[in-house]
Design a protein around this nucleic acid. Structure first.
Lengths: 209, 209
DNA sequence: CACCTAATGGAACAGGAATCCCGTTAATGA
DNA sequence: TCATTAACGGGATTCCTGTTCCATTAGGTG
């Protein structure tokens, strides 16, 4: 007796190997390129299919919408997380994090990709969830820097380590989105310094009442 | 001798009064509503024209694209800037600013509008410029709070007042864009406290070399 | 190796958004 | 008030994006 028809709504679940995996990888890579070049609003699935050397129909059937495609791209990006710094010094770790974010956003390709992805996540709840998952992973990756600083006594004991990590990224993203000023190393260092100063002053202590 | 044909590329420049102004106002108001309801990607110019009780052709002719329309909306928004607080206390002023931003972003209507506008600015350089202008105006509006605190001796003399104001908004925007957590008053107060602590520690001093 | 069918790809089809055409309306200046 | 023409509005048209149909290809399994 053969297996039942499985779920036809999401192709690629019954035979995930070989061609299907190849197609997914090719489409996701092409999606990255297209997002970088034309942004999310300019995402043309016909062009995308041609880049990936894949039939248009396949893209529409497997992902259905551009937002769903970006959501899949985000889960793919979340899986390949970068290792964090481990210098043993809070100042050094936060600066390393800030510079990593700054280099990522300042890079023409990566920066455009992140902007496009932020935009896509805005319109669709599923994509938004994938984006939140991506950033949760990134923040969790770097949170131990702060936790260890707390254990060393450099920061107040009830410091919210996630808030500190987010405080490093926030000004860099805000600058990218609302100004035309370049994202240079000085901006990164200022973000790290400010986050550390605020954390030392107890601005990120957990509210417990 | 009558005037020459004027610039036909931008209708509304030769006869900006009466009907033209009425049409512009109606369309911008309808655009706000449409952006709030369907977001930027769901912006339908046919529906928009119907809301504004204006011909579809008029919208296409005067603005040409959805991004140009949003850019015009942004210049309109930049002109009606809100008055800042003037409590005489840096702590109070920054908190007032933070809560204003927080209320704006947390408000279903305004929050959706700001997200939509950020999205639109991503795709088009002209819209991006209009967005930058809008935020420059807002930051300049609140910068005196910081300047006065410097004059009172509360902050280092070479503090970059614009950076401090931006530091208040940044974590709120970052939280809105990358997490699902609600933007409450606690988040606003934390943003204000952190910005003030970092400023007092000299994290936003101007680099002079 | 051979069978079964999930998954893909090309082509035709449908729906909707952007553009063009031209008659109508009303802002501006004498 | 009247003439001029900028600006608007409705309808037809074009173009493009997303969907459907069916033949073909190639995983997966005995």
């Amino acid at each position: 007796m053969t297996a039942e028809p499985a779920d036809p709504s999401t192709p690629g679940t019954v035979r995930p190997g070989g061609r299907t995996a190849r197609v997914r990888a090719a489409v996701l890579r092409a999606a990255e390129d297209a997002l970088v070049e034309h942004g999310f609003s300019g995402l043309d699935l016909a062009d995308l299919a041609q880049r990936a050397e894949v039939g248009r129909t396949t893209v529409y059937r497997r992902w259905g919408s551009t937002t769903a495609l970006v959501a899949d791209l985000l889960t793919d990006m979340a899986e390949q997380s970068l290792p964090r710094a481990r210098s043993g010094s809070l100042t050094e770790d936060l600066r390393a994090n800030a510079r990593l974010v700054q280099r990522t956003l300042a890079d023409p390709r990566q920066g455009a990709l992140f902007r496009a992805v932020l935009v896509a996540a805005n319109g669709d709840p599923g994509t938004a969830e994938a984006l939140q998952h991506f950033y949760r992973r990134r923040v969790e990756e770097w949170a131990p820097c702060v936790t260890e600083a707390v254990e060393r006594g450099e920061l107040p004991p009830d410091t919210d380590e996630f808030e500190v990590v987010r405080a490093v990224s926030a000004p860099l993203y805000y600058r990218m989105l609302t100004t035309a000023e370049p994202l240079d190393e000085a901006a990164a260092d200022r973000a790290a310094t400010a986050a550390e100063a605020a954390a030392r002053a107890g601005a990120y202590r957990r509210r417990n009442g």
